[in-house]
Design a protein around this nucleic acid. Sequence first.
DNA 1: AAACTGGTCAACCGCGTACCT
DNA 2: CAGGTACGCGGTTGACCAGTT
Length: 268
Amino acid sequence: MVRAPCCEKMGLKKGPWTPQEDQILINYIQLYGHGNWRALPKQAGLLRCGKSCRLRWTNYLRPDIKRGNFTREEEDTIINLHQKLGNRWSAIAARLPGRTDNEIKNVWHTHLKKRLKQTQNQPTSSTEPGRQVMMDVSKFNKHDDPIEEQEEPVYHVRSESASTSSVHEECSRDDMSSSTADNMKMEDSSMSSPEGFIEIDENFWSEVLSADNYNSGMVTISDDLSSAADGAFELPVHACTSNMYDSMDFWYNLFTTSAGELIELPEI
DNA sequence: AAACTGGTCAACCGCGTACCT
DNA sequence: CAGGTACGCGGTTGACCAGTT
């Protein structure tokens, strides 16, 4: 199959867009839409190829583009989704309203990869053998304050009732990012009072990670457990033999999206 | 002040694939 | 079904800028 040339090289402009070009493109799309990218530049009077116009529109000019720095919640979401989806930037972008795949890809390569590496390089002390859960302070600390030494750090996940009322329904990450993620406060216990939090103790984990389920690599999240998220819960911190579960988002998603489902745990 | 270096981000390139004829 | 076209995606590039030497 012969591939059509990306664009006519002759006479077509490349490189940064000028404000005038932007305005022409915006005006044209507002009037006629963008049914045919290939024909668009010619009809609009732009000396660009359709591909360039599409990219400019989707990555920069679209009215629903959210400008500015990524929030901590957005970054956590990206990290979490990247763990699940890999380099599928468009799939990740689809779950972050107002963000483009290009932007997410850039922020991943420039910020998040480094952040993740730093997190993973932090020393961990294995106090108990076997599959246990470690929550990394730096990853979930809402503030950028230096992490203070703690004997037994715990984390509080507050999930407002509104955000988890649909726990038993199929819950997309879009919902999570817009409402749940906003409501989801992750904080070190040293920073605020756990007042009003429902504590989830070892029994919680032993139920989630019950020997039968867990040894087989399968965990059932019961409705009872997921409904615990209607309030909040406190996670005990232990050492971990793998980074696999080194993510609050991982567990949070498990509880809020997997009620009643049989979940296969990736092998450590 | 100039040169250098590293980070950031917009834009490009090429491939895969859906869709059309 | 095969060939052609257009689009979307992920990887890469290069211009620009700020900080450092």
